[in-house]
Nucleic acid binder design. Structure first.
Lengths: 337, 337
DNA sequence: TTTATATTTTGTAGCGCTACAATTCATGGA
DNA sequence: TCCATGAATTGTAGCGCTACAAAATATAAA
């Protein structure tokens, strides 16, 4: 009398079980606890499963066991290579531990909130976020569900765990390079309405370091985050209007820095003689463009590895709450400064 | 006597039902068929759900209904902006139809196969792939499950449906630009062991067009796909060894073309006077670099829109099997040719 | 008032899988 | 021979949700 609703005719454990002449539980055990099943039986089940093209239904497994092998990562952008290594690090590490990484894109905290809901709805094993600015409601729900959550690219005061590097230290380090090479009129390009502290934190540090050194700290231009390379020309124009004596400029990303270099090229200005340019992120273009860009190189791959490792550990019951890992950064000195 | 296994203490429809003094089915209806529930009841249920921080369990809903609101997209790379607009198109369109887009990265057809398995395991509503080269086993399983599948960036002979533009037409069009401007010794940069037909298809077309025009068609360099900008210098060196009289070069992507431009800059060569450079893809850098890159601009956003639209339509029961949509391309002429 | 009809709510069963407990079966020692 | 032990297999119930049908309630027509 069992009334089965018509589903897409997918192979189930049940159908494998009948075909192999064993109980459904033996099929389940074959996949989840192979050592509990006799070699001969296991091989037969595996063979039949392969023949029928069986793909386990994660949704059902998830529901029954309350566990998941999927980790959700939410990244702000795939417009350039910024998160490439980070995602690679996460993906590789997830695979090592037998987990899957799925991504969602979210360029605003509102979209991030929606993505978080989707992932929670999918009952993922954990969530990796970029940055530490989130919708209050999103933070709320993450805390309520007590899911393993890693915030990356930033340090400090995490919802659950964090992996990143110090923006303060990196900003100081890149300024150090410029100051030690004798640049005295340093311009700052930041982002207007930046979506993330990762960017907004830098300006006050810039100001305080330069003020302390007795140098002008008001040579600031805020660019539109969506502009990419295009921000370079605009920024250069405004900065030279404010401070015609500018001899160096630090950029929010290597993309903007490359845009500045392109514009210098158009104007026929020599870099770094006429003006020095520092980037951020060690994007691929930083080493390829001429002159090479001096930049901040975060250990993005390690950050990805560490993020997933921490999620997996928490999913396995370790208590990492409040743990914050600093994966550091390097200053890569190239010809642009 | 109901023995409940301890799950993470998440809010369920059941708990909302008790709190609201209605049956679980009313809660379910409130979310799935709001019009079936009286205004007053619906509002009360919604309010309580929001208060408790309820997030519907997609895994369970999926299992019960056999339907899914999640579309899986598998993309080869996020290393540069190539798939940015495509993904945006998919994401926006999915949102319009009330679907969610999740991504997986897969840089080889083997990884693609694994990603397909994951998505089928998650019982997504449909899958978007890039290119038409896949593992036989992957094709097999996709056909067996009869899931809506779109292959994009290519045309012809789809597993299920396809959205793309003609590589042949685009290759001819870009060659046309070079030939009509009088370039006669055209070099070709391709990819060695390219993962995709999208790239390998171009070389034979290049050869046949040039042979037909009575021009040399053997000025070919195959670069490593992983090299990015770095492929430019290597390619230029080898091409000039093979054919010192080269006056133009067409590149597999704008990234490689930019690498060529950087190298020309290092060598002090004027573009396009000494050599013309054509790219492919209309990446952001194409319009920003000096000189601007002549390139093939696929309608990536529309491709993404169309892909998801077709998946959604199929998921709703329309029969689009075998449907192939050509979203076309434009040649963007800039100063590099 | 009664009956037919529409509106709203609620049981029931089952989606595919797994935790857990129970069962079966072979083996070896008392 | 009987019982204890361990290995292999199987039954049962339930994960959270939804399709479907049945029931309760409200509304209109007779």
């Amino acid at each position: 009398m069992t009334k089965r609703r018509e589903q897409v005719g997918l192979v189930t454990m049940h159908s494998i079980a009948s075909a192999a002449g064993v109980s459904p539980m033996t099929v389940s055990n074959t996949f989840r606890y192979p050592e509990r099943v006799q070699d001969e039986t296991r091989q037969r089940v595996m063979r039949i499963a392969a023949e029928l093209g069986y793909v386990p239904n994660h949704a059902a497994g998830n529901l029954a066991s309350g566990q998941s092998r999927v980790i959700g990562a939410i990244i702000p952008s795939i417009k350039n290579s910024s998160f490439y290594k980070y995602v690679r690090g996460m993906q590789d590490t997830a695979a090592e531990h037998g987990y899957e990484l799925v991504l969602k894109l979210a360029d605003t905290i509102c979209h991030e909130h929606a993505a978080i809901q989707t992932f929670i709805g999918l009952r993922v094993a954990g969530i990796a976020l970029v940055g530490n600015e989130h919708e209050p409601a999103a933070i709320d729900i993450l805390q309520k569900t007590a899911l393993p959550v890693v915030e990356s690219w930033v340090l400090g005061n995490p919802i659950d765990m964090a992996v990143g590097y110090s923006t303060t230290a990196a900003t100081k380090a890149i300024l150090d390079v410029l100051l030690s090479r004798g640049y005295r009129n340093i311009g700052f390009i930041g982002y207007e309405r930046a979506a993330s502290h990762r960017f907004t934190e830098r300006l006050p540090i810039f100001r305080s370091v330069l003020a302390q050194a007795g140098l002008p700290s008001d040579l600031v231009h805020l660019a539109d985050e969506a502009d990419g390379f295009g921000a370079g020309p605009k920024a250069l124009e405004e900065l030279f209007r404010i401070g015609p004596r500018i001899d160096a400029v630090i950029c929010p990303t290597d993309i903007v820095a490359a845009g500045v270099l392109f514009e210098c090229g158009r104007r026929g200005w020599k870099v770094p003689d006429r003006i020095a340019v520092a980037g951020w992120g060690d994007y691929e273009i930083a080493s390829e463009i001429t002159p090479g860009l001096t930049t901040v190189q975060p250990n993005a791959y390690e950050m990805g590895q560490q993020s997933v490792t921490m999620i997996v550990e928490r999913a396995r019951g370790n208590r990492n709450q409040g743990r914050v890992v600093d994966t550091g950064f390097q200053i890569i000195k190239r010809a642009s400064t």
